[in-house]
Amino acid sequence: MAGVTKVEIYESAEELQELLRKQKIVSSRERIQALYLLKIGHVKTIQDVAVVLGRARVTVQRWLKDYTESGIKGLLSTKKSPGRPPMINLQAREQLDREL
């Protein structure tokens, strides 16, 4: 069948359910939920997972790729963007703080 995922999920359904309960970040919860749905057989394809979770198919594929490459730790790791550099340099900011 086209679209059926061949990802091997190593954790048991009970372990995934426990991880699901412990998650405080919504994005991490969705990722664990995707694995859980596949593990219990509620969904068969990546497209089905995407529909149930309300995410794009490509996003779910990226999650599963992260899981196969680096396991559950890699799936749950969040990457923080460095953000835009400040327009005012540190010295000028310190001087403004002193004057104010």
Results as ranks from 00 to 15, higher is better:
Gly3Ala: 04
Val4Phe: 12
Val7Cys: 09
Ile9Ser: 02
Tyr10Pro: 00
Glu11Ala: 08
Glu11Trp: 09
Glu11His: 13
Ser12Leu: 00
Ala13Val: 10
Glu14Gln: 09
Leu16Pro: 02
Leu16Val: 04
Gln17Trp: 05
Glu18Ala: 15
Leu20His: 12
Arg21Val: 10
Lys22Arg: 11
Gln23His: 01
Gln23Tyr: 06
Lys24His: 10
Lys24Pro: 00
Val26Phe: 12
Ser27Thr: 15
Ser27Asp: 13
Ser27Lys: 15
Ser28Cys: 14
Arg29Thr: 03
Glu30Trp: 06
Glu30Asp: 15
Arg31Asp: 01
Gln33Glu: 14
Ala34Trp: 02
Ala34Arg: 03
Tyr36Met: 00
Leu37Phe: 10
Leu38Asp: 02
Leu38Ala: 06
Lys39Tyr: 05
Ile40Gly: 07
Ile40Tyr: 10
Ile40Leu: 12
Gly41Ile: 00
His42Leu: 10
Lys44Ala: 09
Thr45Leu: 06
Gln47Ser: 13
Ala50Cys: 06
Ala50Met: 07
Val52Arg: 07
Val52Phe: 07
Val52Met: 09
Gly54Tyr: 01
Ala56Gln: 13
Arg57Ser: 06
Arg62His: 13
Arg62Lys: 15
Arg62Asn: 14
Trp63Glu: 01
Leu64His: 00
Lys65Arg: 14
Lys65Ala: 08
Tyr67Ile: 02
Tyr67Glu: 03
Thr68Ala: 05
Glu69His: 03
Ser70His: 14
Gly71Trp: 10
Ile72Asp: 01
Ile72Ala: 04
Lys73Val: 12
Ser77Gln: 15
Ser81Ile: 05
Pro82His: 06
Gly83Cys: 06
Met87Thr: 11
Asn89Gly: 12
Gln91Glu: 14
Ala92Val: 09
Ala92Gly: 05
Ala92Gln: 14
Arg93Pro: 00
Arg93Asn: 03
Gln95Tyr: 09
Leu96Asn: 07
Glu99Leu: 15
Glu99Thr: 11
Glu99Asp: 14
Glu99Asn: 10
Leu100Met: 11
